[in-house]
Amino acid sequence: MNKKNKFEVIDNEKAEVNVDMEAKLREQLEAEIRAQIESEMKVKLEQEEKARKEAEEKLINYEKSMEKELEKQEKSFKNWLDEQPKVSIEIPEDPNNPNEVVPVGLNGVIYAIPTGKQFDVPKPIYDIWKYSHEETKKVNKRIRESVHKEIKISG
């Protein structure tokens, strides 16, 4: 082997070593970059999860405070209704509605009024039931009248 060939072999070996080192360095660098990205993504996901939990907690607290406020207003309105003059009411039994009570409500306060019995309710509750009853009678009358009318065909 002459001197020139000997140097070529050594240069080829050095080139192979350099290629191997370059590949190893590339792999190491890619692994470090991948680890860095994964770490950053993990931190970001944790921050987003924390923000989501905080938002959920705020929403739950807001809902609770609104429920308390609504309950307070309902109690206040219920107290106002209780202070109103009472009116005796007897809701007739209705074969089309076999329930033993008729619910009548105003601003979230519901009275379950028994049918076929005298019952004292605040005047505003009585007024609501009376209006509803009168409207129902009007509708029933129109239905009865429309059933008995002759159907006229013009032509």
Rank of each mutant, 00 (worst) to 15 (best):
R52V: 07
D20G: 04
L106D: 12
N79M: 10
E54C: 01
V102M: 11
I128L: 01
Q118L: 13
V17N: 15
I89T: 02
Y62S: 13
D127I: 00
D127K: 00
E48Y: 05
D94Y: 00
K72M: 09
K138V: 03
E90Q: 12
E13C: 03
H148R: 14
K58G: 06
V121C: 00
E40P: 04
K141I: 14
G116Y: 04
K117C: 08
K130A: 10
E71C: 09
V9C: 10
P92A: 09
A35E: 11
L70N: 15
V17E: 15
Y111W: 12
K53N: 14
E56A: 10
I151A: 05
E16N: 15
Q28E: 11
K75W: 05
E30M: 00
K138P: 01
F77A: 08
N96S: 06
K44I: 07
K130F: 05
V121P: 02
K130I: 04
E40K: 03
D127H: 01
E30W: 04
I10V: 12
N5L: 10
D120N: 14
R142Y: 12
K141F: 14
E83I: 12
E90T: 14
E100V: 01
S88A: 06
S132P: 02
E30H: 06
Y111E: 03
I33G: 02
E90Y: 07
D11L: 07
